[in-house]
C-alpha cells in the first residue's frame, strides 16, 4: 500500500523548515546499569552514535534490548551510568521541552481538554495568551483536531489521543522529538494513517526524530536510518541507512529485501531474549 493519501488539511504557517544546529544528538560511550551487585542488569553497553539534525532514526530490537532505556536517557528521565549524551553542544542532565516525548500510553492529562493539553507547555513557557491561542489553533489544525479542542481525552479514540500527544509537543516546536512505540497500541489502519501524518509533519517541520519500535515494517516505512540493538546488554548491532524514496511501498521488492535482512537480525536477538525468558533470567 502506498500512502498517497495525504489528508487534505490546511497547510500550517510553518516555522522555517530547516533543521536547527542544536538538533543533533550525540551519544558517547553510553552505559546504563540498573540495580547493583548480583541483581545488576546492564541495559546499555558502549553505545556511541551521532544522529544529525533533521534525521528520522528508528531504534529497533526485541524487548530488553535497551531501546527505551536509550530513549529515556536522551529525554533526561534516567541518567546514564557512564558516558554522555549531548543535544547540539549541551549535555543532557534533565528532561526539557527541547526534546518532546510521545509515550505509547499517550500520557495526556485527563483533567484537561484537548486545547488545554496542547497549551500546557506554552503556559509553562510563559507565552502570551493571544500568541498561545494562535499556536494551539494552528497545531490543532495541522493534526486535524480543530473540532475536538473542547473534548476531554476520555472521549477520544486511541488514534486521536496520540494526535493530541503529538500536538502537545509540536506546540513547543522542539528541535528533537522522541517517540516511544507511539503507535504500538493502535489498530493497523489507524497506525498507518498516523505514520503518514508523522512523515508529513516531519517533512514540514524537519525535526530530529528518534522513534522506538519493535516493528520491522514500521521502521522501514518511516526511518532514514535504523539502529538495530542487541538483547542485553543493549549494544548497537547494525546501523542501516534506508534510502528508499518516500512514500514507501511496503509491497515493493526493495522494501521486502530490507525486511528480510532486518528480520534475520532482529530474530537473532529475539531468540536470545526468548532463551533468557525461558531460563527465567529475563527482566524487562
Amino acid at each position: 500500500m502506498t500512502s498517497t493519501l495525504a489528508p487534505a488539511r490546511p497547510a500550517p504557517a510553518a516555522p522555517a523548515a530547516r533543521p536547527s544546529s542544536d538538533a543533533e544528538i550525540t551519544v558517547t560511550s553510553a552505559r546504563k546499569v540498573f540495580g547493583s551487585g548480583d541483581k545488576a542488569v546492564v541495559a546499555l553497553e558502549d553505545v556511541t552514535a551521532t544522529i544529525p539534525a533533521g534525521q528520522f532514526v528508528c531504534l529497533l530490537g526485541p524487548s530488553g534490548c535497551g531501546k527505551s532505556t536509550l530513549l529515556n536517557a536522551i529525554a533526561g528521565f534516567s541518567p546514564l551510568s557512564e558516558g554522555q549524551i549531548r543535544i547540539g553542544t549541551r549535555p543532557v542532565t534533565e528532561p526539557g521541552p527541547d526534546r518532546g516525548m510521545v509515550f505509547q500510553e499517550y500520557a495526556l492529562f485527563p483533567w484537561m481538554t484537548v486545547e488545554q493539553n496542547i497549551r500546557f507547555g506554552l503556559d509553562i513557557k510563559g507565552v502570551r495568551r493571544a500568541e498561545a491561542e494562535a499556536t494551539v489553533a494552528r497545531i490543532a489544525a495541522t493534526l486535524g483536531l480543530s473540532d475536538f479542542r473542547a473534548r476531554f481525552p476520555k472521549d477520544l479514540s486511541g488514534g486521536m489521543r496520540q494526535r493530541v500527544a503529538i500536538a502537545r509537543i509540536l506546540a513547543l516546536d522542539p528541535p528533537v522529538m522522541l517517540m516511544d512505540e507511539p503507535f504500538g497500541a493502535l489498530d493497523a489502519l489507524t497506525r498507518r494513517t498516523l505514520q503518514d501524518e508523522l512523515l508529513r509533519i516531519w517533512a514540514e517541520y524537519r525535526k530530529t526524530i528518534v522513534f522506538v519500535t519493535h516493528s520491522i515494517e514500521e521502521a522501514i516505512y518511516l526511518a532514514d536510518r535504523i539502529l538495530v540493538m542487541t538483547y542485553r546488554p543493549g549494544r548497537l548491532k547494525r546501523d542501516i541507512t534506508v534510502s528508499l524514496p518516500r512514500p514507501r511501498d511496503s509491497a515493493s521488492a526493495e522494501f521486502n529485501a530490507l525486511k528480510r535482512e532486518l528480520g534475520g537480525l532482529v530474530m537473532e536477538e529475539q531468540q536470545r531474549y526468548t532463551k533468557a525468558e525461558m531460563s527465567g533470567t529475563a527482566v524487562d
Binding site: F77, F103, I169
Partner: peptide
Amino acid sequence: SIYIRAARNLGANPWTLFRRVILPAAS
C-alpha cells in the same frame, strides 16, 4: 508517574507540577 514524566518533559517546574498535575490527578 507517567503524568509527572510528561509534565517534566514539557518543562514543568516543581510548583507547576504540583499545582497543575499532582493536585488535579489526586482530586
